[in-house]
Design a protein around this nucleic acid. Sequence first.
DNA 1: CTGAAAGCGCTTACAG
DNA 2: CTGAAAGCGCTTACAG
Lengths: 350, 350
Amino acid sequence: MTEPISVPVLPWRAATAKDVAERAGVARPTVSAVLNGAKSGTSVSSATRERILEAARELGYRPNLAARSTRSGKSRQIGLLIRNFSRSDATRLMAHPLSYEIVCGVSDGLEDAGYLMCLMRLGDLQQALESQNALQGHLFDGVVVVSDVHRGVIEGLEKLVRHQIWVDGNVWNAHGCVRRDEEFAARLCAQKVAEMGYKRWFALFHATSPHYSSPQRMAGLEAVARECGAQIVPVALRHAGSAEMAPLLDELQPDDAVIATTFYSAQTLQNALVLHDKRPPRDFALVCCDDGFHREGSAWQELSRVSFDRYQMGFTAAQMMVEQLENGTTPPSQLLRGEWQSGRTAKHRI
Amino acid sequence: MTEPISVPVLPWRAATAKDVAERAGVARPTVSAVLNGAKSGTSVSSATRERILEAARELGYRPNLAARSTRSGKSRQIGLLIRNFSRSDATRLMAHPLSYEIVCGVSDGLEDAGYLMCLMRLGDLQQALESQNALQGHLFDGVVVVSDVHRGVIEGLEKLVRHQIWVDGNVWNAHGCVRRDEEFAARLCAQKVAEMGYKRWFALFHATSPHYSSPQRMAGLEAVARECGAQIVPVALRHAGSAEMAPLLDELQPDDAVIATTFYSAQTLQNALVLHDKRPPRDFALVCCDDGFHREGSAWQELSRVSFDRYQMGFTAAQMMVEQLENGTTPPSQLLRGEWQSGRTAKHRI
DNA sequence: CTGAAAGCGCTTACAG
DNA sequence: CTGAAAGCGCTTACAG
């Protein structure tokens, strides 16, 4: 684990199909046929088959994927395009850490079908479409796009790559899209708060650069509030700091609920509690329309929330991409639902 | 944004260098020379140069990267290998969400140099080395490996791909590795706690599947404790739940500090506070040897901690890979240091 | 059942 | 300053 590095690398040449063919005493195409699982009409006697497999093993033959792509016109590589903040803003180089669950789901789903996922983080998608890169270079059989994108980008992408799947963003067609049912999540959350007997709801939402889901969640909350006669107080957050929470915390009464529309706003509120003596569920209720890293043991299990499996969303998107590539038909869009986790930050009044 | 999908895709053929050459009335190699930035000895008259550029523009010519790889033997693709839990454990499909910052750093660093990052999440690295995949297929010019790996895997990788960089894991050679200075982080954290006047330190650490950093952090804490005569009480965590925290919380006194060696253990403790009336810094100090999403606005700013920029670590690794590929020499290993953030969960005693 | 040929799209020498 | 040729490693028809 600690020996010196840098063994001089010999200009060693990897074995090719030609080498295998020569060693086995057959022609090159026969090698292809055997190694790629013999097609009908190209059956090979089991004797030569064995010879070829043995020669390949002895030479450590590994087919060159780039050459295969060149010939077949298919790379079995899928680009994952994920929106990112501009690189010029050094404090926000992460686009939504929770996206990592989507990334992982997409990666695993593609891997299961023998595809490789290439991550492209795009601060400026428009610019990425124009500059020379993998997208331009016919490298991807398809592209999975995560998060909101502008119309120009959508059109540009459709020219650059034949197959697309849209995940968790503003694109919503009858086919080829995956989304979470945002309004359902908000309604579910609001119903639980209503059932527990809270009358006044402070709804935390992000006022800057809102995701498409933000208005949908607010709409869900408002619909339920109308139905059950609760009062909604919108609380617009502009910065991510806990300082913004101080006035809210001062105002909260035991009959009040804070409904965080995003996981981050719930976390920010919790962090702000260091400076206050109030805490849920004793002094107010805290519920959230979302949870954090759903699949991870370190999730915030105590939070009363609607949980949602982003990994599954990514996995579903990958499966849709594979179906599209292999059947040639774009599968119907899917709207995924979360479920309520009662947690411990809210409790029944009375 | 809502029009129907599935315009029938014509069997449309992308323009090739040959098409461009014909349209411009030159030979194919001249096209290559112009489009790849003319090499010395292959200068082209500015008239034909213009003709070629115009023809390429008109035809929407985009060079085929797979073909280029085949010919040149270089793909400009780098594999990012990241350890993951086994897929059979559905509750832990995320390997350490904080790794996402490393992933993003690597991606950005490679992109800056014109390389593409392909993510491979490996539940069973050993198996991945043996199965047919991108690693086998000569697809990567190099590989960046994140987290701990077994010796067999190291040797296997060295046969499969010529260039490696090791990040945040057990591999530590004089060259080609990037790590955080774990012992320094722990010492820094312990010194701050000592300065603030805390006498008894409860050190939270994960007893199951520890990262290489865990013993180093504990060693750093113990060294400082010896120097300043503090008492260390190790608290081994087995599950990620907050239930484990209950006995600890009962025992804590205002002169006590909890030193979380990992960010997750700090979070778990904070989540457990829902069930208790104690909170830092009033009733005890909470400090951490690590922070969470360092670059993200949603970071836990209030936590008194040693902060560390994983994005920078990934970016550094990417730069080292590029240097290695382009200069042919493996750059020296780098040990990166975090810095103290005083936060609000610990305060001076007295 | 097997092999010789042509071709994917590109680039790297090398000759004019 | 420009072009005809050879080749990267693979696969897909097609002929024996």
